[in-house]
Computed example of a mutant assay.
Amino acid sequence: MPPKQPSIKGRGTADKIDGRFNTHQRELVEDSWFQEPENAPKTTVEIEHPKTIITRNQSPDLPFSQSINAYRGCEHGCIYCYARPSHAYLGLSPGLDFETKLTAKPDAAKLLKKELAAKNYQCSPISLGANTDPYQPIEREYQITRQILQVLSETRHPCHIVTKSSMVERDIDILQQMARQNLVRVHLSVTTLDSALSRVLEPRASAPKRRLKTIETLRAANIPVTVLIAPVIPVLTDAELENIVKAVVDAGALDVNYILLRLPLEVSPLFEQWLHTHRPDQAQHILNRIHDLRGGKNNDPRFGHRLRGEGIYADLLAQRFRSIVKKLMINTGLSPLQCDLFQPEGGQLTLF
Rank of each mutant, 00 (worst) to 15 (best):
V245S: 07
Q25P: 07
L261F: 03
A196I: 08
T132M: 06
F21K: 14
W33R: 08
A247N: 13
C74M: 14
I324Y: 04
R211W: 11
L307K: 03
K4R: 12
N288H: 02
V190N: 01
Y89Q: 10
A118G: 15
I8K: 00
L316K: 05
K246N: 03
R180W: 13
P63A: 12
Q282R: 09
R156W: 09
L116I: 13
D31P: 02
L96N: 03
V245Y: 07
D292F: 07
A118P: 06
Q181L: 11
R308Q: 06
T277W: 00
Q177R: 13
P3I: 05
L254C: 05
C123D: 08
V200E: 05
V186A: 02
F34E: 10
R289L: 01
L28E: 15
E216L: 14
Y313A: 05
K119Q: 03
T100H: 08
V248Q: 08
Q284P: 00
P2E: 01
N288V: 02
V168R: 12
E216Y: 06
L307G: 02
L197W: 09
Y89A: 12
F303S: 06
A14G: 11
D107A: 09
S65R: 14
R308E: 04
N243F: 08
V184G: 01
I174Q: 06
P224Q: 13
C159Q: 03
D340M: 02
V245E: 11
A88P: 00
T214A: 09
L149S: 04
T237F: 10
S165Q: 10
K297Q: 12
V248A: 08
V325F: 02
P208N: 11
G91H: 07
V186Q: 01
K4H: 13
H291M: 11
D300F: 05
F64T: 01
K110P: 01
P60H: 07
I229W: 06
E75I: 03
L197V: 10
P231G: 10
T155W: 14
Q66F: 12
L112Q: 05
T44V: 15
H24N: 13
E345I: 05
F342D: 09
